[in-house]
Design a protein around this nucleic acid. Structure first.
Lengths: 195, 195, 195, 195
DNA sequence: CATGAATGAGGGTTCATTCAT
DNA sequence: GATGAATGAACCCTCATTCAT
């Protein structure tokens, strides 16, 4: 069943780990659970990964790569609203469906595991913030550096927070998830006060 | 050492649990850790709490009560900006310092523990959203219901997300934490586009 | 609810212990179970009994006294068959109904607890054997001492073994339990071979 | 020390369990006791047995198999007395020596553990009763069905009861144990009354 | 004497990790 | 490299017993 190619086997393990972690959570999942799901022996996993936490980390890293590869093309400069919308759409849709459960597990562990947290910040949050800041300042030359930095953090936080709250089964959020980028872009650009 | 009053003893255990959970995280913490920190026997904890998860839940519930009791007085009607600022200040400061670490642990477990999650949603998020929605619509009569609902969720998500990101040691965020409510209020009310 | 008379309280505890032991078995029963059933505090039990095993022992001793008090009057000498029947009827009916469950628990522990075992042998088996031997030799003067000793042991063993097997829900045994003394008396006196 | 063959290892554990259970009883024995006696790690036991009760059950099942394999060849038809003697000899000798202590522990738990009890009834008592009934009716065609059923139960109960009483150190029983089958056969066939 | 909270030794069981085959 | 049995440290939790009130 399992193929002999080392890279493929590694990926096969990661696939299984992702599925089982997503389904049961990190701590309740045992190495045996993953091995069984992958149709291999427990010990084999240790030929590819140092430890159970290292396996979660690898799962996360692959998730990261997938997200990065699926990064949207730079939006048409000039249209600020479209830019922002695109910036929001990407993360909000990337984590849906199956990914949600896994995201939850990864974030959960990240909050408590410094190594995972550093990785997340370094490889996902920080680049996203930097990139977003550049986009934003290009699109809104009137924005000074300090406000731009704050804005991207606010937006990024908003995305993470909304994603977590999505998992709380809030009906309002669930019902409008797809139109969220549009409405959030409007809110962020125009503000709540009438113009 | 230990005091005989049952309520005090219970609180003493909760204090210890909060400290140790915050320091080590939920799973790495053992009941013995908490008992030792509290200066009592392991078994005593089970006279007050059903199980280890129940203890975390109780820690969270007390944290919730503390937060609720510290709820700000309704801000002066009329000044929208002040209202929003107050709404943001409360959660952003409530979770600071020692509480941050504990918050992290609770959220971490919440993401993975349905009971904790339901409690959090029911007792913290939902009331906050409802209250905020009322405030907001009073302060901004021009806001229609749908946009108001979305706005409070966006704001709430933003707060949670920023709080989590604060734990990532982002220097920008750390440096401006105290002035965050003000800037976020401005951002939310005026938007990013020049007026 | 509980009465202050020490003897009555002791008996009250024994009643509760008998009920709970019978229902749950010795090891699964906790002191708290018994205390709760008796409507008293855990510690109170230790004012009347040394330990949990001592409590079982006391339960057994009271059971023994009850059985002894209910001992049948010496049967009319002369009628061997009636004598034997009476000897069998007593133990086979004494342990029925509620007592069965308790008997089971006591025997179970007795098999494994030397003190209980010695007590049982000394106070129940040995006197019963001695008495039975005397009866039997009076009724059957032709019986020599050795055969009499063996016979009473065989009978006594038969009673105990049948009682245990009764608890196995053997339908044949359940259905004929009441006529058992009669049939066993016939079997023992006449033997299986046709006369 | 330990041999790699899974069946042997399983049997090695069963051997140790039998020894330690027999020596200390079921409840006082810890898994660690057994592991130490077997010269293996605690956890290893759980690779072969579900739980501590399951281990006792397995011990009993192997004891059962041993007893069954040692079943006597059908005795020479025609000689009723020899038949009965053989029927009695088998169980009365099978449980001697080391086995006695173990038998005691198993019966003790059986009295209180429904699963063990059902197994014992199903695999030991019931087949023995059925087989004995057939033998008996062949040997004694004059015996009607009802009396035969009762007789085998009486005999079976007698064997179990005597075996238990043997453990009470009754000197009379101990001294005559080997000649017991003969005397019991006489008693059962001829009865106590003089012919 | 009654109470019942406190104690803490100990138990069964799990599971990440190792390593001989 | 693959296997999976063996390992044994730990953990959560129970509960008989004690003792201050």
């Amino acid at each position: 069943m399992p193929d002999p190619n080392p890279t493929d086997r590694r990926n096969h393990i990661l696939d299984s780990a992702a599925v089982v972690f997503a389904a049961k959570g990190f701590h309740p999942t045992t190495i045996r659970d993953i091995a069984k799901h992958a149709g291999i022996a427990d010990g084999t996993i240790y030929n590819y990964f140092e430890s159970k936490p290292a396996l979660l980390l690898a799962v996360f890293q692959r998730m990261r790569d997938t997200i990065i590869q699926a990064a949207p093309p730079p939006p048409p400069a000039g249209d600020v609203r479209a830019t922002l919308r695109a910036m929001l759409t990407h993360p909000l849709t990337a984590l849906r469906d199956d990914n949600f459960a896994l995201f939850r597990v990864v974030v959960s562990e990240m909050l408590v595991n410094a190594e995972l947290r550093a990785l997340y910040h370094q490889h996902i949050i920080q680049p996203a913030l930097d990139g977003a800041e550049i986009y934003l300042r290009q699109a809104l030359p009137t924005l000074d550096a300090a406000r731009a930095q704050l804005a991207v953090r606010a937006i990024s936080g908003m995305v993470m927070g909304l994603t977590i709250q999505y998992t709380f089964d809030d009906p309002t959020l669930r019902g409008q998830w797809d139109s969220l980028p549009e409405h959030l872009a409007d809110l962020l650009l125009d503000g709540l006060l009438p113009r």
